[in-house]
Design a protein around this nucleic acid. Structure first.
Lengths: 206, 206
DNA sequence: TAGGCTACCAAACGCTGTTCAGGAAAGCAA
DNA sequence: TTGCTTTCCTGAACAGCGTTTGGTAGCCTA
């Protein structure tokens, strides 16, 4: 009676196909310019079919971002296994985060830069995105806690400290993604900005 | 022959009325939810009339953001005249920036958080916005240069340093605006995050 | 008073996300 | 094989969006 299983597989296959098409367009055109109709056309299905697999556009794009952010968490976990000194680990973690943002600019912005807003303009955030974000964040927090234990940085509330650090590297990542192209502003080279920022953030924690 | 003048005044008045209505809706509903049609309805004109005064929606919203950012520059100039010690001045400047973002969240996000993007997803930035941003930035740079001269922070390239600092406080501002409402993430109180971030950024510069 | 000029608007175009009634096909039971 | 049910998918529509265009009404000048 493998019929039900086959059906489930086929259904899953189409879901993946939608995600793949959306992901490609997403990468190509950016968040603002991906439309349900373009995705549908790419996979040669009717637009309404997409709604059989995803509640709405937000959920579809979110599912892609979650997949992408899972890669960030993988990188972080990998970094954990390289058993570096705490401070070195912290620096690598920050660089890893920034590089991730630069490698997946659209996904990064869709997740952190352009939150969904309701009619009142309040931020809406899904549980799923919250979870994956929390995972990344807890990596950061634990590294910071370790740096405090080892005495590499001064002791403080690891929660508040980690949030503050996250905000800073988010700012670096965000502006590197969105505003570096603009030639009217005399941006310094990315490398310099990253190096100095990472160094100064760590210095500030000592 | 005051007719032409009266006409010019009337034209200017309508332009301002459009801006005022847009600004109000903007504040109320956020960037995503302001539409030309809603603005038109609010001032009881046809949507197309708006296009006699603004090239497109982007230009209209930009003109509002520019006005708002002019206030930030005013605050910064005011701060200059209070003739504080360099380091104190730097701290106040940073706090001033963050508070500005929190007081005008939609304007802040529209200017820095949600840049216009073309079909390829590249950032488009207008000259006008670039100018006003450059003004704010040059304030920051000159304070930092002064702190270097006075020996309060270590000497380095003031351009790169200012950009790095800007990125960090942008990150703090941005995340305070967009993600604090989300209850699933255990955010620390805003005050704590601001205090620690500002203190650590300055510490990192020493 | 006639002509021109400006301000304005209604309607339309092509796009968007989303919903929904219905059809085709596949699976199952008799 | 026939009929029934379930599943998947679609075409058409709705309401909204930013923007353009053709045309009109009213004021200003001559």
């Amino acid at each position: 009676m493998g019929v039900a299983e086959r059906h489930a597989r086929e259904k899953e296959a189409l879901r993946s196909k939608i995600q793949a098409a959306a992901s490609e367009l997403f990468l190509e055109l950016g968040y603002q310019n991906v439309s349900i109709r373009k995705i549908a056309e790419k996979i040669e299905y009717a637009p309404s079919t997409i709604y059989l697999h995803f509640k709405d556009k937000q959920e579809l794009l979110e599912s892609i971002c979650i997949d992408t952010f899972a890669k960030l968490n993988e990188s972080m976990t990998e970094l954990d296994q390289r058993d570096l000194a705490p401070l070195e680990r912290l620096e690598q973690g920050m660089r890893c985060y920034i590089n991730f943002g630069l490698q997946h600019p659209h996904h990064y912005l869709a997740t952190f830069g352009i939150p969904a807003r309701d009619e009142q303009g309040k931020t809406i955030e899904s549980e799923a995105v919250g979870n994956i974000g929390l995972q990344s964040f807890s990596h950061l927090r634990s590294i910071i806690a370790r740096c405090m234990e080892s005495g590499d940085i001064r002791t403080a509330d690891s929660m508040v400290t980690a949030q503050s650090v996250w905000m800073m590297i988010h700012g670096v990542t965000d502006l590197l993604i969105t505003h570096t192209e603009y030639s009217g502003f005399p941006w310094a080279p990315k490398d310099q900005l990253v190096d100095l920022s990472v160094a100064n953030i760590i210095r500030g924690l000592k």
